[in-house]
């Protein structure tokens, strides 16, 4: 009887938490959308003192940061997964996994510290910049942070491949690289795809480390490919201004609206990542 009660209680609590979360998101950002409409999402200016709330600079910043991170982390993580599963002997695998687990466990604030103390001075010296605070720094830092996610999930993808496929490919006389390209990668691809989507979501939501190195200036890079100027991401904006905004003000609900946009982006990514698994389960 107590078991039933406990289970019911936890289910109800969780449902209450979900309702509370969704309710808060809509309720807190509703005032903003009802006052300004949805046009600020593509607005280019963000000056809370003049009631200008354009989301575009932060959106562009987030997109750039995650793009840089993916360009670096995806090949590296994938290669690390292939090396650790397909090349390394079995007994070293657990050591590699331990390293990846540790890397995944390092708190983001420590990455932020590493970024401030190592990355920013390095960028300033090598690229001759006034300040190292830039989208590039944020992207580089993010790439290290999402690397373990990508590696871990791709490793699982390669481990899950039925050994019969490898044997069959061997019997056909394919050499190692041909096997990789023709057999292993296609088999692992759905999982790799969802791994990178998940990593994208995680990178988009990363706050502290990005906030410390991105510079937090609301500007769209000019020209658009100029990654060496300080910029802003959605998360860094929320993190910077949440402490200053007074409760219930326009700025407050604008930041909540930023949170809503971020949540929607990430939730959509996560839902896309989940769909192929479902299909594979039906086959």
């Amino acid at each position: 009887m107590w078991l039933r009660g406990w289970i019911m209680l936890s289910v109800l609590t969780s449902i209450a938490l979900i309702v509370l979360f969704v309710g808060f998101l809509t309720h807190a950002s509703l005032p903003f959308f009802s006052k300004y409409g949805v046009s600020p999402i593509i607005g280019q200016e963000w000056y809370p003192y003049e009631n200008l709330y354009g989301f575009l600079p932060a959106l562009v910043g987030s997109a750039w940061a995650i793009a840089i991170a993916l360009i670096i982390a995806l090949p590296c993580g994938l290669a690390a997964a292939i090396v650790s599963v397909e090349i390394l002997p079995l007994r070293y695998q657990s050591t590699v996994n331990l390293g990846i687990d540790i890397l995944a466990g390092i708190p983001s604030v420590v990455y932020g510290l590493l970024g401030i103390a190592l990355l920013l001075p390095w960028l300033e010296n090598n690229l001759d910049l006034l300040t190292g605070h830039s989208l590039l720094a944020a992207g580089l830092l993010l790439s290290v942070m999402i690397l373990p996610t990508i590696t871990r999930l791709s490793q699982d993808a390669f481990r899950d491949i039925d050994n019969n496929y490898r044997e069959a490919a061997n019997n056909l006389g394919l050499n190692w690289s041909q096997q990789l390209v023709a057999v292993l990668l296609p088999q692992a691809w759905p999982s790799i795809r969802s791994a990178s989507l998940l990593a994208t979501g995680r990178g988009l939501g990363e706050t502290i480390a990005v906030m410390l190195v991105v510079g937090s200036i609301d500007r769209i890079p000019d020209p658009w490919y100029n990654l060496l100027t300080p910029a802003q991401t959605i998360t860094s904006r929320i993190g910077r201004e949440m402490g200053e905004a007074s409760v219930g003000s326009d700025q407050w609900s604008a930041l909540m609206a930023c949170g809503l946009v971020l949540t929607l982006c990430v939730a959509v990514l996560s839902i896309i990542a989940q769909t192929p698994h479902k299909r594979a389960a039906h086959d």
Binding site: F24, G205, E206, M242, S270
Partner: peptide, 18 residues
């Protein structure tokens, strides 16, 4: 899985408001 992917920052906002 979807809630797992929602950024911690947003949960922080939720906590701040509620």
């Amino acid at each position: 899985t979807t809630f797992q992917s929602i950024p911690p920052l947003v949960y922080g906002l939720c906590g701040l408001v509620v």
